[in-house]
């Protein structure tokens, strides 16, 4: 680490390349922090701190590290301080070799802690499949793919898809999450399939959505038709405007397809007279962290079009029309209560 005392040349990059703070700047930043947290801090001290901050990019960078340390405490905000002190005291006694901690692991995966906890509760074979998938999206992310034959696929939040185009077949494997498919006709006439662990669906020139989780696969058809063959060999043809759920053991009776299953690729969630609980579950898929709904309001009926990637906006819309109030005890913790 280069010594950085005294005058420092201005940072070379344009903000992209942050200046690495030296020990000296960090010492100064830490002592400013201690001064600013005091209830006795004066206006003159605050001004002196601002001057210090503006004096060099290294100071600004050192201060960013101080803020990053404070952010690590965020999950404890609003919790009992005495309990936190006791917990930290117990944690200090252990071996100091926790670089392979959960949150560090979550970083390795490029997931938040909530995402990591999600994988932790998924069956391992599915995790393995999802992890080696060709296309993946994180929570809140959507993606549009055009395949070699012109088929368009939209990948919804938190999904994993593999594509196998071979001589006699076009095959998509959905390991987790949801896709919307608009198939193109193939010059070679190869059949088009979407497979999940519960079975496979053959598209008959069409537009349809597949949603897969640990418990079942769900198919909504919007144009033409799709044929399901589940793992046990049961066959079911699903026509435009229809929907079916299936598992390895069976296929549900046909129901009406839901518009919502087509709307998400336009970045919206459509509620068509559904319980609040169901809408929140749908919105929660785009949002790391926790959203809880109090039982007294869970069954309120909702109707409307809500932005998928903007939970704050969606909740504000709901708060305006329903007798509910939104609580945020923690930055990643939202709970919906009766007003």
């Amino acid at each position: 680490m280069a010594a950085t005392d005294g005058a420092m040349p201005p940072a070379g990059g344009t903000g992209d390349e942050a200046v690495k703070p030296g020990r000296r700047s960090l010492e100064e930043a830490a002592s400013w922090y201690a001064a600013l947290c005091s209830e006795d801090v004066t206006g003159a001290e605050r001004q002196a701190w601002r001057d210090w901050l503006a004096r060099s990019p290294e100071h600004a960078s050192a201060w960013e590290h101080v803020e990053a340390v404070s952010r690590r405490f965020a999950p404890l905000h609003g919790t009992d301080p005495d309990a936190a002190v006791a917990g930290v005291a117990a944690a200090r006694r252990g071996p100091v070799s926790r670089r392979r901690m959960l949150s560090g692991m979550a970083g390795l995966f490029g997931l938040g802690l909530a995402g990591w906890l999600g994988w932790r509760h998924t069956a391992l074979p599915e995790v393995l499949m999802a992890w080696s998938a060709d296309y993946r999206t994180g929570i809140g992310e959507q993606r549009e793919i055009t395949l070699a034959d012109g088929t368009q696929v939209w990948l919804n939040t938190d999904s994993a898809l593999s594509v196998e185009y071979r001589a006699g077949v076009r095959l998509l494997r959905l390991a987790a999450g949801e896709i919307l498919v608009h198939t193109a006709s193939d010059p070679g006439g190869r059949p088009f399939y979407v497979a999940t662990r519960y079975g496979r669906m053959q598209a008959l020139g069409t537009r349809f959505a597949v949603n897969h989780d640990q418990h079942r696969t769900r198919l909504d058809v919007f144009e033409s038709a799709v044929e399901i063959r589940n793992a046990a060999g049961a066959l079911q043809r699903v026509e435009a405007g229809q929907r079916a759920d299936f598992t390895a053991d069976g296929v549900s009776p046909l129901q009406a397809a839901e518009r919502a299953r087509e709307a998400w690729h336009r970045g919206v969630v459509v509620a068509d007279d559904i319980p609040l609980q169901q809408l929140i579950e749908e919105l929660a898929r785009y949002q790391p962290g926790h959203i809880g709904v109090a039982p007294e309001v869970a069954e309120l009926s909702v109707m409307g079009v809500y932005p998928a990637g903007d939970i704050d906006h969606a909740l504000a819309m709901l708060e305006n029309t329903l007798p509910i109030r939104i609580e945020r005890p923690l930055p990643w913790w939202i709970s919906i209560e009766a007003k």
Binding site: R72, F73, L76, T79, A84, G87, V88, A89, M101, S103
Partner: peptide, 27 residues
């Protein structure tokens, strides 16, 4: 997880300094 992470960071400090820091950070 957060307690463990913070405990690691504060591992080398005297107990009173660690406690003071947690109290100041929290509320």
């Amino acid at each position: 997880e957060t307690l463990l992470e913070i405990g690691d960071m504060l591992g080398r400090l005297p107990q009173k300094a660690a406690s003071a820091f947690v109290m100041a950070q929290l509320d």
